[in-house]
Computed example of a mutant assay.
Amino acid sequence: MVFWDSNYNCNIVEDHVQHLTLQVHHIISQFKFHVSIVYAIKARTRQDLYESLNQLNQQLIGPWSVMGYFNVIMESSEKKRGRRHRLCRSLDFINCMEKCEMMDAGYSGKFLDIVKISWLEHIEGTYMYIMQQKLKRLAHKLSNWSKSSISNVFDKVKELENQIEVAENIYEVDDADQNRSNLQALYAEQIRWMNMENSILKQKDRVKWEEGGDSNTKYFHSVVRQKRKRAYLHRIKDENGQWIQADNVISEAAIRHFNHLFTQPQQNHDFSFLKRIDPMVNKDDN
């Protein structure tokens, strides 16, 4: 059973055994978004949940929020007691988050407080203008909050790469359980931050594509031309260390190089030295 405010209309998009997905429509502003409320049952059935969410990602258009109980964690820091967390148990969940282009909003109450305070600030104007200004202001405040509390995502990814390199060297010298656990925790943390980095880059690319419109075709072809230009060989060094250029000359030098590399010269094998070795097996042994 679902209850909602009279200012909203809710339509069921999918009633899955492990999630309920709704399209929410604000009547006044005409703003639409989707919400999926998840309740995962057992580990062996979670793959069905992930596949369903992946299919929804291909169908839904506009903002989409997924919340609820997945019955799995992304990293060991989310677990306080019990058995040690293993990264392999989280990989399917992490892959689902990545395929759906989702970012973990965390579990701090401060995020919701920022959204609530920003949204309740008064703005004068038409409904569409109020909605546009509130979204713009909220995006600015969330960006500042993200930088102050989560830190720079791209810097964090580079920092984790360095930490993993150190941890791998330590584990090679001493493969103790604690060193392995530390390394796995860093791997999980790296995957989480790389997913966030991926999501940010994809969102930026999507915005640029939508803003660009027809000019994207021109941009796409310019990118292809630049890649071809960088990949083009203008000159190379031959076997004598001399620079050569022109397509036909470079082609002939490449053919000579690989002919020499894969063709063995005729060799005369002299096995006369074998006569100096005393035989260990006689005719009777044979």
Rank of each mutant, 00 (worst) to 15 (best):
S149D: 09
E211M: 06
E252Q: 15
Q178Y: 08
L201C: 04
F220C: 02
V249C: 02
V24N: 10
V72H: 01
D247Q: 09
E159S: 13
Q132N: 14
K110H: 15
N182G: 02
C10A: 11
Q264A: 12
R206L: 02
S76P: 07
L183S: 01
H122P: 04
R89T: 14
E98C: 08
V17A: 04
S52F: 03
E252D: 15
L53H: 02
H140G: 10
K218P: 00
M97G: 07
D284A: 08
W4K: 06
C10H: 03
E98V: 04
N54E: 15
L142F: 05
K134A: 09
F271A: 08
G212Q: 04
L56W: 01
C88F: 06
L135V: 13
W4C: 10
E239V: 06
Y232N: 12
H85M: 04
I191C: 08
S151F: 12
R83Q: 12
M103W: 00
R228C: 14
E98W: 05
S108N: 11
M280C: 03
S151H: 15
F271G: 03
G212A: 07
E211V: 05
K156Y: 05
S146I: 00
V249P: 00
V66A: 04
W243P: 00
V173Y: 03
W243V: 07
V115W: 13
K32N: 14
K147P: 02
I150K: 05
E165Q: 14
R225E: 01
K42V: 11
M131R: 11
N54K: 14
A40F: 06
A231F: 04
E168W: 00
D155M: 15
S65L: 15
L20I: 14
K136W: 12
I73D: 00
S6C: 08
K283D: 05
V17M: 04
V223N: 04
T45I: 01
M103Y: 04
I191G: 00
K208Q: 08
W193F: 10
F31C: 03
D285F: 11
K79C: 02
T126Y: 02
M102I: 05
H234Y: 05
E101A: 08
K227Q: 08
N57A: 13
S90Y: 00
S215F: 09
K79E: 10
I130F: 03
Y107H: 10
D5G: 06
E161Y: 11
S146R: 15
E161M: 13
H234A: 03
N11W: 07
I164G: 08
D214T: 06
D177N: 13
H234E: 13
F31K: 07
L201K: 15
V115L: 05
R192A: 09
I61K: 09
N95A: 11
M131E: 03
Y107V: 03
V24M: 12
P279H: 11
K141H: 11
Y219T: 12
H19N: 09
A254L: 15
S118G: 00
N198K: 13
M280A: 04
K158R: 12
G212S: 12
E159M: 11
A43S: 11
